[in-house]
Design a protein around this nucleic acid. Structure first.
Lengths: 298, 298
DNA sequence: AATTACTTTTCATTTAATTGAACAATCATG
DNA sequence: CATGATTGTTCAATTAAATGAAAAGTAATT
């Protein structure tokens, strides 16, 4: 089954002659002649009755032409759809990120993408679980920690540092807090993935692990942060969601010389033969938007 | 633009893998792989995201697939329409014949064709003018006289003989009619294409031309025949419409040893690469039906 | 954990299609 | 009426595609 023969036949009928069709298709007349003849041979019917310099569509030829012309129309629409998608980033962009990234950061990113490219739809999927990008049709992911899938392409965004924070109100009435051990006399607000039993701090080569009572714990970083803001205690939070100037960013870093975990953050996406325009523009915007959040000098 | 690449791509999506598509298309996997890759190269987009043993349609791939699958559906319908037409004679059969052929003969022929092949439609075009079969989309023609288009294929049907006829009633009260010259004393009913000024008769090597008054003349052989039946005079008519046993066939041949014009009759049709089934069956039925009308011993 | 089975890709060889040139036939023009 | 232009077909040379075999990687089975 050779659909290119059908395409040539349809063009011959539309053009009214082999020669005119050859000109429009930019093919030699011998190619046009041969392809139509081959189609007739394969179908076992005369599609075009030829007298010298004149063509006439047979009844069978007309029936075939009607269906084939519709078919070709759809094929051309398929190519036009691809042409349109190649020129302008469009369609749906599906991004996954850990739940503990800040709302401000992510909502800012999505806003930037859609402001610059209104034709793009964005679906943001926040989850803790590992997402197989290819299998789940996800265009890109923001990942913290060590990467484990080497088939993906990774672009580093920076380092996510975790540190201790508390509100002014809390600190004003709480005992002094100069060393990590002092946390034994404080109410510790724990984000469960960041240590259920103890917090570990580092300063240069030194490392101190402080056992915790586990009195208050949640697996939502927003909830832990809100508790800290309301003066309930000291929380271990990533520095990127506690930056000055953020709405409700009125937390004060305590034990500033000590930092807890430090994770690399990457933007990852599947290797593929052709980079979709929507992904290319997203990667550029994401790096511009996100890198400042993960820089060391905050 | 290569539609065969699109066809293979559609099949890969439908089958779920290159290997399964290759089996269904009865192509090597290398052909399937190469064609899809070539399509992606030509379009400049990734249509299928491949991980080992797994395929995933991209957004662009999905858009292309939807249009292309519709297109292929129409293409397959085109081929199915041809398959159907090739197996069973169907569609419209357009036949042309001279106006002076008998109604009984032609209506008998059409009835035979449609009894044996109910799917066939028949359009009978009676005309005096020359019909360009190819240009006018006519499948076949019944022609009398010498043929002049050598590009057509001709099947001889016999000889159409013209002779003098009159009704019993007319002959009972008319003068004797033993020689062609006796026609001077008779009312001659003329069919205008068969001589407006004179009738010529032949018997063996002898030939007599009888001048006519031109009193009664019509260009419809049916009208001339009806006038003869109603006893208005002597008419020159083709022997095939005055055969005994025909409804309203009560005409008597006069001057039986003399005959007027004798024309060969042929069935003609355009030479073409493939014989449509409808034409093939028509030709067979037409020869069986018509030859007896034009045989010499009537 | 090792082996087998399956998928997709790549490459050298084989096979097939394309094309330029020539030819035959008809139409348009002078 | 002769000539030139155009159409469609055919064929040998050229170009391109298809394919079998091999390779790499992963999943399923023992």
């Amino acid at each position: 089954m050779d659909f290119n023969e059908a395409a040539v036949f349809v063009k011959v009928v539309q053009a009214g002659s082999f020669s005119a069709a050859a000109r429009q298709l930019q093919l030699p007349t011998s190619t046009v002649s041969t392809r139509v003849a081959r189609l007739e041979q394969r179908l076992g019917v005369t599609l075009l009755q030829r007298t010298t310099r004149r063509l006439h569509l047979t009844e069978a030829g007309n029936a075939y032409f009607e269906h084939a012309a519709l078919g070709l129309g759809h094929m051309l629409e398929a190519e036009a759809a691809i042409d349109a998608a190649r020129q302008e980033p469009q369609g749906k962009l599906k991004i996954t990120a850990p739940a503990d990234l800040g709302d401000s950061m992510l909502s800012g990113l999505v806003q930037q993408v859609q402001t610059q490219y209104p034709a793009l739809e964005v679906e943001l999927v926040l989850t803790e679980r590992y997402v197989d990008l290819v299998a789940e049709g996800v265009d890109a992911a923001i990942r913290t920690g060590q990467l484990r899938d080497s088939s993906l392409i990774a672009r580093p965004l920076g380092i996510a540092c975790w540190a201790a924070f508390a509100s002014h109100d809390y600190l004003a009435q709480a005992p002094a807090l100069r060393e990590p051990q002092d946390l034994n006399h404080h109410h510790c607000l724990q984000f469960s993935p960041m240590g259920r039993d103890a917090w570990t701090f580092r300063r240069g080569p030194s490392s101190i692990t402080v056992p915790l009572k586990g009195n208050t714990m949640a697996n939502s970083i927003g909830i832990v942060r809100n508790m800290a803001l309301s003066g309930q205690g000291v929380a271990l939070l990533p520095t990127y969601i506690c930056k000055p100037g953020l709405v409700m960013g009125d937390l004060e870093r305590v034990l500033p010389e000590w930092q807890a975990q430090a994770d690399p953050v990457h933007l990852v996406y599947p290797r593929q033969r052709f980079m979709p325009p929507k992904l290319r523009v997203f990667l550029d915007i994401a790096q511009a938007e996100l890198r400042p959040w993960f820089s060391d000098n905050a």
